[in-house]
């Protein structure tokens, strides 16, 4: 079982950079372009790892330290995620809180890394990031609480195997609402449209990309990688909920999970192709709305 858990961690580490590739491919397809290859991010990261680095004179060690510790935090977060019925490497009651706080640590590091440059652009991005994440965090926690109550378990590795096709028959509306709220949180936390536009690099509208403007070389590669892993974390939370195929065979489960992740990336790609970015003032409303949906779901679960 431990081996299987370790394998799924390796799977995440190896395959996560595919997700942005799939998203971009879907967007290109919808727009009628060829688009970059699915493995583009691997190329980018490989190229960046081989380059030197340029640091701003304003920055301190905080700037150098932040991307590394941020990547470490998201990798540890990955060890808490179960795939299908395969338990996570690290599972205990309340691990969902640790997961949320590890992502919080990663965000804190990114934000202070951005503030270290003294650039007003990066300060702006950091300011928006903390606002949206402060509002997204309770929503994430509410969805997790609803799932915990539904499964009568406080560990992600206990909650997810308990969700089956049968659970959907019994509590379909609640699970659907939880998924919707979780999707909204995923879009906000991963800097996707309609919250943030990952394609714009130098406009006042963006959040994540502007915070990492001054990173270069291996640091930038680590940041891209960490962002892909974070997308993988939220993807697995959603896929485990929406595609509860539990055959009991590890290989089949993992296959279904990977198909689900592909679908997740496709859905994000379609959302990004069909929607415009929201006005910044509307984003908190979207998150509060997601919170309201999560509360309704919770009421349904408690009923």
């Amino acid at each position: 079982m431990r081996i299987a858990s370790l394998c799924q961690l390796l799977l995440a580490l190896v395959l996560a950079p595919l997700l942005p590739g799939v998203i971009n491919k879907v967007k290109a397809f919808v727009a009628g372009r060829t688009g970059p290859p699915i493995v583009q991010l691997y190329h980018d990261m490989f190229k960046l790892l081989g380059k030197g680095a340029v640091y701003s004179e304003t920055t301190t060690s905080v700037f150098r330290f932040a991307p590394l510790a941020g990547l470490a935090a998201v990798i540890v977060a990955l060890t808490l995620l179960p795939i299908g019925s395969v338990r996570a490497l690290l599972a205990f009651p309340g691990d969902l809180v640790l997961l949320a706080y590890l992502l919080g640590l990663m965000r804190f590091l990114t934000v202070i890394g951005a503030l270290d440059t003294g650039s007003s652009f990066e300060g702006m991005g950091a300011s928006r990031e903390v606002q949206f994440s402060a509002l997204a965090e309770p929503v994430l926690m509410l969805t997790m609480v609803a799932l915990a109550r539904q499964a009568d378990n406080l560990s992600l590795s206990g909650i997810y195997p308990a969700i089956t096709g049968n659970t959907w028959v019994q509590a379909g509306p609640a699970l659907a609402m939880i998924s919707a709220a979780l999707l909204a949180v995923s879009l906000a936390e991963n800097a996707r449209i309609p919250v943030d536009d990952p394609n714009t690099h130098l406009e006042l509208t963006m959040i994540h990309e502007v915070m990492v403007l001054d990173f270069s070389g291996p640091d930038l590669a680590f940041i891209h990688y960490a962002a892909a892993l974070k997308l993988w974390v939220f993807g697995s939370l959603l896929v485990g909920l929406c595609l509860p195929l539990r055959t009991g065979q590890a290989l089949a489960d993992v296959g279904a999970f990977l198909a689900g992740m592909f679908l997740f990336a496709t859905v994000i790609g379609i959302i990004e192709s069909t929607m415009a970015r929201l006005r910044l003032l509307r984003v908190p409303q979207m998150l509060v709305g997601a919170g309201a949906i999560a509360i309704v779901a919770l009421v349904l679960v408690l009923r």
Binding site: L49, G50, K51, G52, A53, V54, Y55, S56, E57, T58, T59, T117, G118, S119, F121, L213, D214, G217, P218
Partner: peptide, 13 residues
């Protein structure tokens, strides 16, 4: 990774 590469310092973008 950075050993043997040029690491330079400049102003913030």
């Amino acid at each position: 990774l950075l050993s043997g590469q040029t690491v330079s310092r400049t102003v913030t973008w």
